[in-house]
Nucleic acid binder design. Structure first.
Lengths: 234, 234
DNA sequence: ACAAATATTCTAGAACC
DNA sequence: GGTTCTAGAATATTTGT
């Protein structure tokens, strides 16, 4: 019996990492399955005709009246996030109908086959600690807020207030700097264009610009190249 | 010749597609700002007291009654997705209150500063600095030694960390923007100087510049004035 | 108690329109 | 640029030993 289940599962999840069959399904799946099966709430959430998907007919009522009784929230979006975490997919369009191969009417035992996603990082619980936080020095030196590490709730609170203020100030200054940068760019683009006109309209004699020596023209070209580089970043 | 033409286009295109103030903000921002300002719907969505954030008091009613009149849907989650796309952040918890530095009561013109975020724009909000398990444990050890409101200390600590990260990112971007601004300025100053030399050395005959008509000289003077105004701020 | 697993929240990616 | 569906990431809570 157990062997059969494991075999079947191995076939289905051939490309993924192996998994161990759970003794009891996650409570989210149990609660949701019970909810869908429950006849009194079929006007809010129910199976489709074949019992292969379930449909949320009234998301507002589900969120307001049912979710809080099962979970610690009343947000439809949190419910959907959980469904996606367990691999459910919304089917078709226009209504909140979800499907999972192992989520079917009357087949409660199948829930054990459903795996929560993103559990793949449970392999090395402590080896991550060693090196990953070494280079926070770079951005530290930019901020005046890094001078001391607060050791109490009160100082943390004060620092938070200050950080928020600094943050707002930085946003404003950044916006203003970007604005000036762009004004500069526009101004220069216009100016460059007008100079180009002057240069091109200047009379040429014997293949030489009358009043613009070679070095000036080279300057102009370098300027154009620099402008091009800068404008692509600003 | 072709080079200069391309150059001009590069400038103009860059200017219009990046940080230059748009003529009209995206309709989403205009509609949302109008919606928040509208007094009759203040029981559903309104400014906070200071006019620095807005609060959705009744998400269900907003989705059902208001969203369809402005957009082509009636999903609260789609509305939230748009807010995030434009850089709004949910503030605090427990209610749908959103903030953006450039989204304020009565300041409709500020909307032009708001940039829609795209895939390649993942630098500012994202940070390389990862929370490590060690740091987490430090916080927990700290909080468990606190006699009063340990969870508050922990969340304050998390927020503190996030603020510092954002602060550092902002500083980096600000420094980079200022640097570009200065490079632009230097480039332009040099260019301006060389042009001035050319202009002043040009022969004058009967009180008239030989090859620089009056309008060009006026342009040049206006340009210089604009430049000096900008350089004093940058 | 501790670390892992799960749950909840908020934000972003990506496909499609 | 907008809408939809799914996933990432941070935080909070529960569970297993």
């Amino acid at each position: 019996m157990n062997k059969e289940v494991c075999m079947k599962h191995a076939c289905v999840k051939s490309a993924s990492s192996e998994h161990v069959k759970r003794a009891t399904p996650p409570s989210f799946l149990l609660k949701t399955h019970t909810l869908v099966e429950d006849p009194p709430t079929n006007d809010i959430i129910s199976w489709n005709d074949q019992g292969t998907t379930f449909i949320v007919w009234r998301p507002v009522e589900l969120a307001r009246d049912l979710l809080p009784t099962l979970f610690k929230h009343s947000n439809f979006s949190s419910f959907v996030r959980q469904l996606n975490t367990y691999g459910f997919r919304k089917v078709a369009s226009g209504r909140w109908e979800f499907h999972h191969n192992m989520f079917r009417r009357g087949e409660r035992q199948l829930l054990c086959e459903i795996q929560r996603r993103k559990a793949w990082d449970s392999k090395l619980p402590q080896s991550l600690v060693k090196t990953t936080m070494k280079e926070s020095n770079d951005h530290q030196r930019f901020s005046s807020s890094m001078s001391s590490s607060p050791s109490s709730y009160v100082s943390l609170s004060y620092e938070n207030k200050r950080l928020k203020r600094e943050n707002g100030d930085l946003c404003v200054e950044l916006a203003s700097t970007k604005k000036k940068c762009n004004e500069l760019l526009n101004l220069v683009a216009f100016h460059l264009n007008s100079k180009k006109m002057v240069v091109e309209q200047r009379p040429k004699l014997f293949g030489v610009w009358l009043d613009l020596p070679q070095e000036k023209r080279r300057e102009h070209e370098e300027f154009s190249e620099n402008m091009s580089a800068l404008s692509s970043q600003c």
